[in-house]
Computed example of a mutant assay.
Amino acid sequence: MDLSDIHSALSSKSYSNVADICDELMLKIASNGVDYEQEWPYAIHLLGHIFVDDLNSARFLWKTIPAFVKEAKPEVVAVWKIGQCLWTTDYSGVYASLLGFEWSPELSIFISAFSEKYTDRMFKLLASSYSTISITDMTHFTGMSKESATQFALQNGWTLDQASQMLTVKQQTTVSKQKVDPSYLQRLTEYVFHLEH
């Protein structure tokens, strides 16, 4: 079984493409009648779907994985635990799942990339949802230690009130410029003129 496309995506850190590559390759192999279940990289495939936040596909894949694979490959179960925590919005559980397993060398870099992406996403979500947040709540949402969460927040421009242990979120300024198409204005003017006359 040729899994070189999957390994190539991993080595080039094209993690967003892993799920699609795995899906296509799995269909191709299955359509040729090849028994792939023993050798298939289910952990990578599951993490590929989780990485692009496609939890429905991850759940479907999980349900199709044979029981003997789940029993023989604890890393597959460990990846699915991350998916379960995401599904139930157990934020600290995601980090506990990431840190609570000794990942294989093949998967550890992919796991690190997911962890960085997830942390970034959580901080953006918190920044858009809160103006101030306690360090305790921050650790709950990020799964980080108090020191790590505080350090990360300060590095991203947030401020800390030592007395209250509250972080003030640095609000992102978004400037949206709209360009109006001159032809649209011309058509609108003609339409209004037509209605008035």
Rank of each mutant, 00 (worst) to 15 (best):
F123A: 06
D20P: 01
S8F: 10
G83N: 03
I29W: 04
F51P: 09
Q155I: 10
H7T: 11
I135P: 00
A43C: 07
G93M: 09
L46C: 06
P74N: 06
H45D: 04
S176V: 15
K70G: 00
L10M: 04
S115V: 01
V169L: 06
V175N: 10
W103L: 05
M138W: 09
H45W: 06
I109R: 09
D54T: 11
G143I: 10
G100W: 01
E39R: 01
T150R: 15
Q151K: 13
L86P: 00
T88D: 15
C22Y: 00
A30G: 05
A43G: 04
S4P: 04
D2T: 08
F110A: 09
V79P: 00
G48V: 03
E102C: 06
S16N: 14
K146V: 04
H194F: 11
S4E: 14
I111A: 02
T189N: 14
T119D: 10
N17F: 10
I50N: 01
S14Q: 12
V77C: 05
S164T: 15
H49W: 14
S4T: 13
G100C: 05
E102V: 11
H140W: 12
C85R: 14
D53Y: 12
P105Y: 08
M26H: 12
W80H: 05
L126R: 10
I135N: 07
T89Y: 14
D90A: 07
R121N: 10
Q38D: 11
S129N: 14
E71Y: 07
R59F: 12
F60N: 11
S16I: 10
V175G: 03
Y15V: 06
A96K: 09
S31V: 00
A30T: 07
H45L: 00
I44F: 01
A78G: 03
L167A: 07
S92P: 03
A127M: 08
T132F: 11
S112C: 07
L98Q: 00
F101V: 04
E71D: 09
H194A: 15
S131N: 13
L107E: 00
S97Q: 02
T89M: 11
